[in-house]
Amino acid sequence: MKIVGVTACPTGIAHTYMAQEALEKKAKEMGHVCHIETQGSIGIENKLSKKEIKEADVVLLAVEVAIEGMERFEGKKIIRKSIGECIANTQGIIFDVIAEVENS
């Protein structure tokens, strides 16, 4: 499955980046393609390309604050999860996302 997503935490200092790393690593381990954009204190990094968004099966938003560029995801399947859960229970979150996409 192809997953794209955005992480953004209240201060954009630590968990934005921790969640990105956790999700990309775990998804890859589980055999999925996953690209996560961070919107934090350094601004937007690891920016999603139009192509990646177009090809993605699902958009995972782990955002605790308003983010930029929501219009890019118009018409896509969007799933929202808490950023804390994405770090504490990364594998469970990915299972959930996949199950939700497959059942929709």
Binding site: I13, A14, H15, M18, Q20, S41
Partner: peptide, 25 residues
């Protein structure tokens, strides 16, 4: 325990904190 000022902070410092956060995984 991390402290950052609201203004005058360099991207360099923020990137170090980001990479520490990732490494802790």
């Amino acid at each position: 325990m991390i402290g950052v000022p609201l203004a005058n902070r360099s991207d360099t410092h923020m990137k170090i904190i980001a990479s520490l956060s990732k490494k802790l995984l």
